[in-house]
Computed example of a mutant assay.
Amino acid sequence: MAAPSTLKITNRSAKKPIKKLPTSIEVTDETTVQDVKNELARQAGGIDPERLGLFDPEKKKILKDRRAFVSELRDVMGGKEILVKDLGLQISWKTVFIIEYLGPILIHLITPLLLRPYIYSSAPPLSTSQYLSMAMIVLHFVKREYETMYVHRFSLSTMPAFNIFKNSAHYWVLSGFNIAYWVYAPNSYTALESPTINYINAIGLVLYVFGEVSNLITHKTLSNLRSPGGTERGIPQGYGFGLVTCPNYLFELIAWTGVTLVSKSFSTVIFDVIAWAQMHAWAIKKEKALRSEFPDKYKKKKYVLLPSPGAVVKYLTG
């Protein structure tokens, strides 16, 4: 084993320095990023280690891989320094996701089944399309809760606690109150439809089932790239990944297209457009990250989220 190395410890934020933070720390070949966080937290007075964000001195990027050996991080060892910042009160990603998705579930159950007589001047029985819209949206977020608990593996264990309000607003407001108020209204398009399931609903249901099942498959593919509790990255391959960078986002949009056809509400279209914009931005970042991290192994994708019809035909025909 090589002799321990001494790394300088620097507060990244001069305005909000961490009190009692040591000026240096010794690391060995077996010292991980999490070990450094634990030791710095102990010496700083026993604060929560997850509050500490560690950054390299060169690119000033946060050290996400908790299991990475510090001695193997070139940007850290080259500068012999680690920048440290207090990230504030933290909350686990799982907790945030559970709360985010619980909102739409409750809103789309309580609004049509209990609150309609109190929200609208009249509340005739729900139509078939309204019931179907409710079931599709609730099941979508129930699936997300399942994935949060049993499928997803997070590179970071926590996020700033304040983010729970920002993240929840997207789902509680846009996919919750926004859609629920208009879709379950007694004068909505879905309320005035024929009680039978029409062909548009049938098409929407097919798209929804295809999108949800495919989305789950891609999420499991992504999860399998990382060991339990690990933060390592890999190149996703298989179902959908040869077509676009993020087929999980593509299938999500397909599922919500199905919801839109059934609900026939402009409120759902608004949610779809905003979701597409956000996922498109994430997909671009993912493509750039894969190209940067695996320059020799990763096959560059022309489409990050929405492929052309020609690309789909080429992909399906091999």
Rank of each mutant, 00 (worst) to 15 (best):
I270G: 00
L222P: 04
N163I: 00
L102H: 05
I284D: 12
L102S: 14
L52K: 02
N187K: 03
L250R: 08
V183R: 04
T245C: 14
E147P: 08
K80M: 10
G79D: 11
K37V: 05
P49L: 06
F162T: 03
N215M: 08
W93Q: 11
G240K: 09
F266T: 10
K19C: 05
S223A: 15
R226K: 13
I82S: 01
L305P: 00
Y150M: 11
T95N: 14
Q237C: 10
L192R: 13
S175C: 13
G45Y: 10
T10N: 05
S71M: 09
G318E: 09
A44Y: 07
A135I: 14
Y181I: 14
A44I: 07
G46M: 07
L205I: 12
A169E: 04
Y189A: 13
P112I: 07
K220P: 00
F55V: 03
L207A: 03
K264S: 15
K85G: 00
I82Y: 02
K61E: 15
L115G: 06
H140Y: 12
D65T: 08
Y118A: 09
T128Y: 12
P160K: 04
L113K: 07
N198S: 08
I254T: 15
P49N: 08
I107Y: 06
Y189W: 09
G238I: 14
T148K: 04
D86Q: 04
A41W: 07
C246Q: 11
H170Q: 02
G45V: 07
I105R: 07
S223G: 15
H140C: 08
G238H: 14
C246F: 06
K37S: 12
I119A: 03
P247Y: 06
S194D: 14
A14V: 13
N38S: 13
Y239I: 12
D56K: 06
V269Q: 04
I62M: 14
I197C: 05
E100D: 15
T95M: 14
V70C: 00
P112S: 05
P125C: 04
L114V: 11
